[in-house]
Amino acid sequence: MNVQVRYFASIREVLGAGESIEVPAGATIGELRDRLIASSAAHATALSRERSLRSALNQLLCDESEPVGADAEVAFFPPVTGG
């Protein structure tokens, strides 16, 4: 399935605003993140498991155990600092 990934803040500065990626049906957000980490050294650093990151699925905050559907929009970003 094709998934649209978006990046924000310090992650966006390294990886750009987003990209498209193919994942197997039933893949979770966590598995998607692992695929991205494996895709380049820059991805491995920016999305590293040592970093505290948040994820959103179709514009709702979510756990990495959430399954990603076809044509989903997934976002990865650092903890938020609004307000």
């Binding site: 924000f8 959103a56 905050l61 976002a75 938020v80 600092t81 609004g82 307000g83």
Partner: peptide, 12 residues
């Protein structure tokens, strides 16, 4: 405000 500070997707 407490909710916004922890959940709203803004970055400074």
């Amino acid at each position: 405000m407490d909710y916004l500070k922890t959940q709203a997707p803004f970055w400074k």
